[in-house]
Nucleic acid binder design. Structure first.
Lengths: 221, 221
DNA sequence: CAAGTAACTAAATGATTAGTTAATTATGGA
DNA sequence: TCCATAATTAACTAATCATTTAGTTACTTG
């Protein structure tokens, strides 16, 4: 156990993995706070407690660093889904579970919302360069389609539901009030992300989705 | 009527309003394409066909120019609503009209979607400095609340609908698939903003909202 | 038509920034 | 213990960028 030197310069422990991870984590916060163009390499280095150039040692460029952050986000986003086995549940329960976990995941991970917005402002140009992410999303709609098929078969769901639209709706219902909370709460004069509001809205979103899919719901002609 | 000089340097017509408007319009496109930090004053000047400094003549700073753009957007956003008099329609028709006009307006104005995202990435910090915008949004929810009240009174709507949540949902359903179209269409391998898809989704969104509000819709317990 | 004012340009400035080059220092294995 | 290698720093560079200073040129009004 090395005694802490009191006057001599403290010998710095080296650990590539830890340092790299620290840079990545600080970078994530920086991109979340400032977007791609607004992010500063110098600030990332300073906050990480490393030299500027170490960033270029572990990542090749600002863009590559950003891509690493974005990849992490989209890998995360995809993997939350696989946690629960929705195929074991009844169609209604499975769909409810899907909505809830999407909603909760968005609420719990503000960085994700933010970085999704940032990347879309860049027309997904960085994400498209990733070879790791796209394959993960093969079959994303399959889970949902399976639930819908089962629900249609057992008569609990109406028969004209489009999986893509439903997916976009579930995501949109959970995403928008978070992504745009700052302008919205200013314009509407209401806090939108208090504990209470989040929980009320959660119920609302689940309600809206399940009411929509149920067979026998009167159509909104 | 001045003859166009063929060899002599063309006398430049001066028109403050036109020039200012041209700069503003070019700036909007620049901020849409690059966000705030990514936008370049030099590029705006060049595209506008004016000198760098003229931008500072009409607007005080990059930030003030950006704010002018943002203000325009949020003033637009608010004014579309007032076009139709929803109070004259039945609750169902009024709500349908509101959903449709929100959806169509978002689809028709991609700049708006983009700039709303950009401003939220900055935590609405610029918008909050505007004194012109906020007052316009007083009573935004009143129209919706009026429709809901009438619908509850005449028995066509269920009684537990929250106006804020419904507003957030309508907006979210119309906003998300547009704002995030670039990552989504890449990940899902589907174009999302073709003429057909937009029209199918329009029906879906209207359907979802109207189905939700109708009395007698089975709840999504 | 003169002269003030507003529209507009040319050219610099100084601060910032992503990225580089050349070293130094710790660490683990021979 | 010495050495190769990887981790890390120091110092620099070349380019970029918002903003300024110092003008010039057209328009308008008395």
């Amino acid at each position: 156990m090395p005694t802490e030197g009191k006057t001599s310069p403290p010998k710095k422990r080296r650990n590539a993995e830890v340092t790299r991870a620290r840079i990545l984590s600080v970078a994530r916060a920086e991109f979340v706070a400032n977007g791609f163009a607004g992010a500063r390499i110098e600030r990332i280095a300073a906050t990480s407690g490393v030299n500027n150039n170490l960033i270029y040692h572990y990542f090749d460029s600002k863009e590559a660093l950003y891509l690493a952050v974005i990849e992490q986000i989209y890998i995360d986003l995809r993997s939350y889904q696989k946690d629960t086995d929705l195929r074991a549940l009844s169609p209604v329960d499975a769909l409810r579970q899907l909505v809830i976990s999407t909603y909760d995941h968005f609420v719990a991970t503000p960085d994700m919302i933010r970085l999704m917005s940032v990347e879309n402002i860049h027309n997904a140009s960085h994400l498209k360069k990733s070879r790791r992410v796209k394959p993960l999303y093969r079959g994303l709609l399959d889970t949902l389609e399976d639930i819908l098929d089962r629900g249609k078969a057992d008569g609990s769901f109406r028969s004209d539901i489009d999986a893509i639209d439903l997916y976009l709706s579930i995501s949109g219902l959970a995403y928008f009030f978070l992504s745009n909370q700052h302008t919205l709460s200013w314009l509407l004069d209401r806090k939108l992300v208090t504990r209470d509001r989040v929980s009320v809205r959660r119920k609302h979103v689940v309600d809206m989705v399940l009411t929509y899919v149920r067979k026998g719901s009167r159509r909104g002609t």
